[in-house]
């Protein structure tokens, strides 16, 4: 399955809804999307990963790159994920320390308050 991306504005945040497979082949699309958002002045991002079926280290790299970009503008990048197989990858790499991970978009937006 390919990668799907949609964005919407909510409470001064841009919510990026990602679906499908984020791998070495599709990750560049996500990277471009994050770069475009930051270039357009969106510095507070919520990446909703509930529809992600597969994530590899290239995908992690894109998320880390996105975080560095928003941090350069004092922004934030929060993740929404409750899927065990995806969470496991963040745990193994230690990136749970780096990304705030929430169980819903509402939680992610509330956490920013």
């Amino acid at each position: 399955m390919d990668l799907s991306l949609t964005t919407r504005q909510e409470d001064n945040h841009t919510v990026v809804v990602v679906g499908g497979e984020i791998d070495v082949y599709t990750a560049p699309k996500l990277r471009e999307q994050l770069i475009d958002l930051v270039s357009a002045g969106s510095y507070h991002l919520v990446v909703d990963m509930e529809g992600v079926e597969f994530l590899d280290s290239t995908g992690l790299g894109v998320l880390v790159g996105g975080l560095k970009r928003v941090r350069a503008h004092e922004g934030s990048l929060r993740l929404v994920c409750t899927q065990e197989r995806i969470l496991k990858i963040f745990r193994i790499t230690g990136l749970t320390k780096v990304f705030p991970i929430h169980s819903s978009v509402e939680d992610a937006l509330a956490a920013h308050e």
Binding site: S57, K68, R71
Partner: peptide, 26 residues
């Protein structure tokens, strides 16, 4: 690095070589 705001590293999403293997080991 993830809390700093002055990271001007030219990051193109390239991950350190070896990360894939570190993930495999986990």
């Amino acid at each position: 690095w993830w809390a700093a705001t002055d990271d001007d590293s030219d990051d193109e999403g390239g991950f350190p070589p070896g990360l894939g293997l570190a993930l495999i080991e986990g």
